[in-house]
Design a protein around this nucleic acid. Structure first.
Length: 588
RNA sequence: GCGCCCGUAGCUCAGUUGGAUAGAGCAACUGCCUUCUAAGCAGUGGGUCCCGAGUUCGACUCUCGGCGGGCGCGCCA
């Protein structure tokens, strides 16, 4: 909002002082320490350094050419060559006034919208969504919302695992021990039972594993009976996914599972072979290093026993079957052809980093002219409370639905204690929104690259830096609205905004950085920046709330300004929570 | 063995091209509900930013070397 304007002005001044400077590196950001002002740039020190110039002298040269009189008080050069900006009162008043009139919400939509495909969630057929899916699902959904808010075109794609080797076991189980009544009652439970049972029996009866494999081969070669069973499993699973996603408030533009790309797989391998990218190796088809980058950066090389050895990317198995590398390549090509995106994001776990490096490198060699940014938006592993990896294969997994139930129950108890007079239905609705919000926020708050320690207590905490705290701050703005409406004297601010109390100024100074925060989120794919921004906003609002009476203010102009400040804060909180996928409430 | 990631307060974690005095939550302790306000606010205590060297005007951040942990390393995804 104001940052892009200041940045443009700064760039004009820099280019006047240093005509050949790389302006993309001239940046303005909020001060890390408010004592230094509202915004700062450290770019001049970096520029001076690489040119062996005196940084303070450069800062002075730039300052002499800088025209920000309309926005800032006197600019200070400080330290080794910082430029510190302090907004003047009029600029703050204009900003908050524009927002109060509904002209903007401190953000400017992208001037050049990009098309972004986001691949996330990706559950497997016949398995319920569990804790292992929450990071991908919430991260992907949140990024999609923020890209859209900033004016970009987004395609969300749920790449469902509907064609893996698990179907061998499942088909065999289905044909031998399926219980129709159990399937009708709880499809996942029954399918899980089938899988586990066959898997267990395979350990004792060696022949069974071959039978399972045979079922898989039959399926993949188009056997009508197996296909029909597979379709039924797919349909049952999708119905379950749909209901969970509806509950989560997550939606997809397209749901194209792995099987969708099946017909294209042989062609992909044929094409890679024709181009000389893939070659036979131990009966499989694989892609090797082309030596185009240093060994250390080459995803097709690995160092073993002191030597660089091939680390190939397998696109076809020795039995002729295809694997996820093949599917991912076909998927990538389909997405480029269908949506012509500027960017494709893969929201999956850290362990898949090598896979995506190989995938992206292979694709670059396959389509060297395609300009599309490919990003693996990876996140840390989920650990148990003991710090050991949270394995999904063995041991019990916590299902997403169980997690939601627990969250709502805990929230319901608190609602009942705090607000026993509310109608039961409203209490339940409040508990639902709070429980869901708590889980989403707990998931989005940590840096995505950190490992995720699964903890009931933490996931469902309802105080401190949590969603309920933000939701509560929002309800305060609503309650003030209601009371103000009763009094009937809450009119829009007609004159100049009164911004005098430190709490008012601190609040406005934070509000205006909303857009900057959203830009930061999509630049690094890190929603936690938004969480921290909102937490800070709620904190500043609470201080304002404690110290600045609104409806009881003597001066009508102060009253109107503060009421509008509340209203705008509520809008930003509501919008911000909405972008995190978290619902707000009018009271709680 | 090699690669990726991590190591910050008692616990869980933030820390935005390297930037000024390293911040939250939880836990502990002390205050504040005849109020537009307590799912809140104010305050106290708590740190060799794993260790060591280097680059730099400046390092939690970058480089190198250790130590500790997690994950990955050819036909699962």
């Amino acid at each position: 909002m104001l940052i892009p304007i200041l940045q443009d002005r700064l760039r004009s001044a820099v280019v006047a002082a240093l005509p050949d400077a790389d302006l993309s590196r001239v940046l303005i950001r909020p001060c890390t320490n408010p004592a230094h002002g509202d915004y700062e740039t450290t770019s001049l020190m970096a520029l001076a350094k690489e040119r062996r110039m005196n940084p303070r002298q450069l800062a002075a040269d730039v300052l002499a050419r800088l025209d920000v009189q309309d926005l800032c008080e006197d600019i200070q050069i400080s330290g080794a060559g910082f430029l510190n900006f302090r907004l003047n009162l009029a600029a703050l008043q204009r900003a908050i006034q524009g927002a109060a009139r509904g002209e903007h919400l401190f953000l400017t939509p992208a001037s050049r919208p990009r098309t972004v495909v986001i691949d996330f969630s990706s559950p497997n057929v016949a398995k319920p969504l569990h804790v292992g899916h929450i990071r991908s699902t919430f991260l992907g959904d949140c990024l999609a919302r923020i890209f859209r808010k900033l004016g970009h075109r987004v395609v969300t794609d749920n790449h469902i695992g509907d064609w893996g080797t698990q179907f061998g076991m499942l088909l065999l189980g289905w044909k031998t021990t399926l219980r129709r009544d159990a399937l009708a009652a709880d499809p996942f439970l029954e399918m899980e039972r089938l899988y586990k049972e066959v898997n267990q029996r395979c350990k004792d009866e060696p022949g069974l594993r071959d039978q399972a494999r045979a079922e898989l081969v039959k399926l993949q070669s188009g056997d009508p009976e197996n296909l029909a069973i597979w379709r039924e499993m797919q349909k049952l699973s999708q119905a379950q996914f749909d209901s969970v996603y509806a509950r989560l408030g997550v939606s997809f533009d397209v749901t194209l599972g792995e099987s969708f790309y099946n017909p294209q797989l042989p062609g992909v391998v044929k094409e890679l072979t024709r181009l000389g990218l893939a070659r036979e190796s131990d009966g499989a088809m694989a892609i090797f290093s082309d030596g185009s980058c240093p060994p250390k950066e080459d995803p097709f090389l690995v160092q073993k026993e002191g030597e660089w050895q091939p680390n190939p990317f397998l696109v076809q198995k020795s039995d002729g079957g295809f694997n996820y590398a093949t599917t991912d390549l076909a998927t990538l090509e389909y997405r480029l052809k269908t949506w012509a995106p500027d960017e494709i994001l893969y929201v999956t776990g850290a362990p898949q980093q090598l896979h995506f490096r190989q995938l992206f490198a292979t694709f670059r060699r396959w389509h060297p002219d395609t300009r599309c940014r490919l990003e693996h938006v990876w996140f840390g592993s989920i650990l148990g409370e003991d710090g050991k990896p949270f394995k999904t294969r063995s041991g019990e997994t916590v299902k997403l639905t169980e997690l939601l139930e627990e969250a709502e129950e805990r929230a319901a108890k608190i609602v009942a204690a705090k607000n026993p007079d509310l109608p039961a239905a409203e209490q339940q609705d409040i508990a639902r929104r709070i429980g869901m919000g708590a889980i989403k926020y707990a998931d989005l708050l940590p840096n995505r690259q950190s490992d995720y320690v699964f903890s009931w207590e933490k996931l469902l905490a309802l105080n401190g830096n949590t969603a309920p705290y933000l939701q509560y701050a929002y309800t305060r703005t609503r309650s003030l609205q209601r009371k103000g409406a009763e009094l009937g004297d809450l009119s829009a601010v007609t004159g100049t905004f009164v911004l005098a109390a430190p709490e008012e100024l601190a609040l406005v100074r934070h509000l205006i950085n909303f857009g900057f925060t959203l830009e930061s989120v999509i630049a690094d794919y890190r929603p936690n920046f938004l969480c921290n921004y909102l937490y800070e906003l709620a904190g500043r609002f609470s201080k304002f709330w404690e110290n600045c009476p609104v409806l009881k203010a003597e001066d009508p102009a102060v009253r109107a300004s503060r009421a509008a400040l509340c209203e705008v804060t509520g809008r930003v909180l509501g919008e911000g929570l909405g972008l995190l996928g978290i619902e707000t409430l009018d009271r709680m």
